[in-house]
Design a protein around this nucleic acid. Structure first.
Lengths: 105, 105
DNA sequence: ACGCTATTTAGCAAAATAGCTAATATACAA
DNA sequence: TTGTATATTAGCTATTTTGCTAAATAGCGT
């Protein structure tokens, strides 16, 4: 599956979008993320793995816990590319470290 | 269902994203859109209705045919809002005709 | 009215999604 | 080693999504 598709599918779920917003302020452990939602730990874990395989977050273990961190680059590139491809006049996409970027569909 | 959720779900499907790209150049009849995809007319019609209920496209009848048109405002607002909420440093969101805008999750 | 074109709606089957609980790993402390 | 805390993986169910074909709707010309 293509990167852009993985990203847009990952963003299709409201819980996952909210997780990204929570991570905006910095790293957070899986458990702490889970505690902020009315759904079970395993379900959140699944959401995190979907976000991770879309490269929207990264994880690192610290002792007992696994800390998740937002990775805004991929999202900004993929979504921004699509947005400026479809409606270039509405959005200014700030390109950065422009290494070979893929198609937007 | 909230507007943002409808929009992100609409964008989750690669065929629908491609339809939006096709419409970038201007209005197009349902049949002509369908002819550009390897899937059946009724399926495309369904995709169009999903895009329409997300306000990403509008339709108008002209005689026999129904012409679809891209409506970039809603998409730019919703997606742009979310993007600049989650990773403000990566994207510049050009706001326009800023009428009461909703939450981004 | 009839036929023709363009498009949508209905109804169905297969696949994907999201939730749950139970079971399994991993790290650390006693 | 045993226990405890933190997370993930497995297995299941219910719902949603996406595709199809067949049937219905809408406009237009004859």
């Amino acid at each position: 599956m293509k990167a852009v598709s993985r990203i847009f599918r990952a963003l299709a779920d409201p819980t996952r979008r909210q997780i990204l917003q929570e991570l905006k302020t910095g790293e957070m452990a899986a458990g702490e993320i889970a505690s902020r939602f009315p759904i079970s730990g395993p379900s959140i874990s699944r959401h995190l793995s979907i976000l991770k395989s879309a490269d929207l977050v990264s994880e690192r273990r610290e002792g007992n816990r696994i800390l998740y961190r937002l990775e805004p680059e991929e999202m900004a590139n993929a979504v921004g590319d699509f947005l400026s491809a479809v409606c270039p006049t509405q959005v200014l996409h700030r390109r950065r470290a422009s290494r070979s970027r893929k198609e937007s569909s």
